[in-house]
Computed example of a mutant assay.
Amino acid sequence: MQTRLLEKIKTVQNENEFSGSVLVAHGMKPITELSFGYAIRSERIKNNLSTRFGIASGCKIFTAVGICQLVEKGKLSFSTRLDECLNVEFPHFDKRITIHHLLTHTAGIPDYFDEEVMDDFEELWLDNPMYKIRSLRDFLPLFQNKPMKLNVGERFHYNNAGYILLGLIIEQASGQAFSDYIQTNIFPQADMTESGYFEFDALPSNTSVGYIDFPDGTWKTNIYSLPAKGGSDGGAYVTVNDMGKFWHALVNGHILRKETLEQMLTPHAQVDEEEDHYGYGVWVEKKGKEVHKYHVMGYDPGVSFHSAFYPSDCITVVVCSNKSEGAYGVMKGIEQIISEERNK
């Protein structure tokens, strides 16, 4: 399997000029570890297995775990209403919105970046400069006074603003800044020693820069495309090995109790008419009645990320890229080999 994976990944990389790092592991044992491209192009510094990558929305799973931990401590419940656990005024929001609705993207609230009507993330910063977005409350003016988009519980609608609210709830319930909470209560439990929420203008060593490529072969970095510091909806930096450790710690009960983990991984919201569902901060893909994989993904300008755990095979895959595209193709190639090996 290892040889076939190596060949497949290298083929996809050559076709798409993939830049980033890849981990495929069985349990905690790596099967394949590879890196391609440059973490910093101008200095020709290569990506390596210890390079930190932004993972955009892939870190919603950390936010969901934080909420689950506070539920275990009795500070919240999944049925707690938004207006009961967050001292912020939302004049047009439905009073029936609960933490469960926010976790499953079924709250119906407006999003600050609505993927159903917007396609250029950089439009957000025309009136709200990205260099001023450094805390969760800095995101509030982007959606706080807008009307509801849908009725509560009407349907799944992927929503970044909902996860900003969940981060604010964590701050209020824990008394810690969101990033401090995650780096104190989640990353250590998974031995994620290299991961964190960093500011664009104060990145630590061995952190990749995100790149936006243009059709004519030119490029730019994403420094002016994203908030100065990411929040609870997206913005963490991880290494592929740290993300592999996270999956292992999560599914083996090192971070949450068994019953809480089961609640988190339950396919609560159906995303489409096929196999995709959403739990708490994690996508759940089913084949028939069985769960095929739990997975997370993230896309921002200069960032593409996919990671999954396949319970029937006990295989973890992490694909981090510092380009706007590329992670999906590598992920699909890896899944093809896993499927073929399973069906031998």
Rank of each mutant, 00 (worst) to 15 (best):
F113T: 05
F113R: 00
E115C: 07
E116L: 03
E116F: 03
E116K: 04
D120C: 11
D120F: 01
D120Q: 07
F121L: 03
E122G: 07
L124P: 08
L126H: 05
D127A: 13
N128S: 13
Y131I: 14
I133H: 13
S135R: 15
D138F: 13
F139W: 15
L140D: 13
P141S: 13
L142C: 11
L142S: 08
F143M: 13
F143D: 03
Q144M: 12
N145Q: 11
K146Q: 14
P147K: 11
V152R: 06
V152P: 00
E154T: 01
F156L: 10
H157R: 02
A161F: 02
G162Y: 01
I164G: 11
I164C: 14
I164Q: 10
L165V: 12
L165P: 07
L166N: 00
L166Y: 01
G167P: 09
G167M: 06
I169A: 01
I169D: 02
I170Q: 09
E171Y: 10
E171G: 09
Q172D: 10
A173F: 06
G175R: 00
Q176N: 12
A177Q: 14
A177F: 12
F178D: 05
D180C: 06
D180S: 14
I182V: 14
T184C: 00
N185S: 07
N185V: 01
I186G: 00
I186Q: 08
I186H: 08
F187I: 01
Q189P: 03
M192R: 09
G196Q: 04
F198S: 08
F200M: 13
F200I: 10
F200D: 10
D201F: 09
D201V: 00
D201A: 07
L203R: 06
S208Y: 00
G210Y: 04
Y211W: 04
D213A: 04
D216T: 04
G217L: 07
T218M: 07
W219Y: 15
W219T: 02
T221M: 06
N222E: 02
N222R: 02
Y224D: 14
S225M: 10
L226Q: 02
K229W: 05
G231D: 05
A236G: 01
V240L: 04
V240T: 15
N241W: 10
D242G: 06
M243E: 14
